[in-house]
Design a protein around this nucleic acid. Sequence first.
RNA 1: GUGAGUGUAGCUCAGCUGGUAGAGCGCCGGAUUGUGGUUCCGGUGGUCGUGGGUUCAAAUCCCAUCACUCACCCCA
Length: 436
Amino acid sequence: MEKLQAVRGMHDTLPGEASAWNLLEQTLQSVLQSYCYREIRFPILEKTELFSRSIGAGTDIVNKEMYTFQDRNGEFLTLRPEGTAGCVRVLLQHGLLHSGPQRIWYQGPMFRHERPQKGRLRQFHQVGAEAFGIDSADIDAEIIMLCARIWHVLGITDVRLELNSLGSYAARRKYRNLLVEYLSENREQLDEDSVKRLETNPLRILDSKNPAMRAVIGAAPSLLDSIDEESAEHFAVLRELLDANAVSYEINPRLVRGLDYYNRTVFEWITDRLGAQGTICAGGRYDDLVAQLGGRATPGVGFAMGLERILDLMQSGTAEPGSDTPRVYQVLVGDAAMKNGIKLAEQLRDKLPGLRLLMHCGGGSFKSQFKKADKSRADYALILGDEEVAKNTVQIKPLRADTGQYEISQDELADELARLVPFPVNIDMFSGSGSG
RNA sequence: GUGAGUGUAGCUCAGCUGGUAGAGCGCCGGAUUGUGGUUCCGGUGGUCGUGGGUUCAAAUCCCAUCACUCACCCCA
């Protein structure tokens, strides 16, 4: 029989790894909340049409990367390849855009059937934020500065911001024609991929990394030169705001995004420390998307960041101690101690929910239990044998200090542990109706 | 989707030119009485990614396949 293994490109998070995820997610959440973005959640599965209509029929994502299938009713469904489309659907379906601007964030797994490599998985996780109903550049600046704050809080320094403006849709269309004209004249200099893209997605040709194409691309008409006046003004205001707030960036006139719905501002946060998949966050403005999906014309800006990539970036830094290591290890030798101990453990958890108490299960000698207590990295051992049970006491032994072991009454144990172990003050969330 | 590299115990790896597998770490136990961390001793653990082929004989050669890694591509 074949060995069972995960689907290609879909990774497991193991016990030692989950705390890094938790830390990242909590940090992101708190920064987003500090800007008053509100979380929404929506299904991983949507109708295929939602994505083909928003992301664009000519894009790689829609053409060859979506997990699409028919359900039992014959309906075409797709595992979401990104979050913005679903987010817009939620707002439209529930009429949230009727009550003024909305600042929204979401998080969760996304699916793209690509060739896996470092920083590129088939199931990966994003946190995204979107702001709807504001067309001025101040919100673009807020979105970008929110990202900058996240890097700061996470201690990530090796990222740079690349910025561009695609102009209005009309200007982009005009530019597209200009570009196609130019590239067609120089067709013999294009590589195979680019010739194909001439018809499907010519803007992406500008993004090509093929050094042989540098000359043609360099001489191509610049997108920034041909954008409309209003967009140019919008872009100028954004740059002014970023400058005034000491957010550094570089203009990359060849920066285009792989999704069709963008206009005006587009940006990417890029690091050189992750190899070929260096974009850890990307976003931009999409003023037509809501209308495209059947809503009243509503401007939007947003970003999505790849959690795996950010984690990779953080991993090369410091190793966290981990919030899943026990603080107290309960050593229980003998049947009576086991019975007494399990009851005692529950009582302690009632009184001290923040205490991470690991109860030894499975019996064994004092020696073997102490070995496990040590390996668990707990600070204290609680020792319960026949003698202690008979006296209704318990021994406390510090495992990381030279202060000696001592015996106290079980009735005083909770108070004693409260004194010994510094707790987080989140006890309330556990003690709802209880006696506390 | 294209190209290249890798795949041996839970982990990190050794195994030269083919003769049915090793180390370190880990895990379990012991070094006399109810006490860990160091040390010493012992033990557990692999149908050598999978499936074919060549051969008297394959972890070792060939083919296929799967997975991982890197680049292209794409993107977060």
